[in-house]
Design a protein around this nucleic acid. Structure first.
Lengths: 132, 132
DNA sequence: CTTATAAATGTTATATTATTACATAACGTT
DNA sequence: AACGTTATGTAATAATATAACATTTATAAG
């Protein structure tokens, strides 16, 4: 069961915005959108984003410097993430595929390194963009 | 067989630096290191990096905004990359595991999206850091 | 060899992304 | 209430990356 986190005021404002947007949002675009709510400085945004990432409510799309709400209700925490990214329309969606996540979570190679976390980003053309 | 690319002057200077360093390097650290060779502006560095990434001589570690020489001699091009990153010492190495790359290259889900590229980053503690 | 084209370079300025440092306030426990 | 922890506010600045424009060099075609 996912631990309930009581989001603080800024965290809630920012999570709600990202969640409602339905897609990835960039930090300064978030800032612009929440200025009317009194959040005026980049640091206020980044602090909320850091916390939201930490507790798994959002994920960072590293290749895009953008943040997206977790679309996977069973996502314990952001330790195992996979996304598909359309290189044409920049649509992003979270992949939740049990076989894939099991495969990667159990992955071990000869390096002697213990993996506690991974992030995978697939790129390509989405259905819409392919048919154009 | 990998296509031979004749690197230009700046590309060669920058590739050699990254390659010799043996690890990931950041753009502005590269800039600092090549200023004595006449490369004076960030854009000169980024242009060479872009090209080197494009032809697969280096890869970008997205979560670190850093660039590393391709350690995989058979790497056709940067369409399928996997790295292991130590969260303590920040050591990075490229994973070349045939089973893993086959698994991911053939991955398809129900989204109807065709994946032409992926990047995977594993995080954890390397052998050295684990034993500290 | 020359002309055309593409690729690379040089340079200045600026945009975008993210953090440091410091002060204050709110929350949760005992 | 006193304490420690978490969150907030604010200003300044650091780190990462691109736009715009002028020029030069490499490559290929005639």
């Amino acid at each position: 069961m996912q631990k309930e986190h009581n989001l603080s005021k800024n965290q809630k404002i920012i999570f709600d915005l990202i969640d409602k947007s339905g897609g990835p949002m960039k930090a300064y675009s978030i800032l612009f959108n929440v200025q009317k709510k009194g959040i005026k400085a980049p640091l206020q945004v980044y602090r909320a984003l850091d916390k939201l990432v930490e507790i798994g409510k959002i994920h960072k799309i590293e290749s895009r410097n953008a943040f997206i709400a977790c679309q996977n209700s069973s996502c314990q925490i952001s330790k195992a993430t996979a996304f598909s990214i359309c290189e044409s329309c920049e649509n992003v969606s979270e992949i939740s595929n049990t076989k894939l996540s099991k495969y990667l979570s159990n992955f071990a190679d000869s390096s002697g390194m213990k993996y506690s976390k991974y992030n995978l980003e697939f790129f390509g053309l989405c259905k819409k963009c392919k048919s154009k």
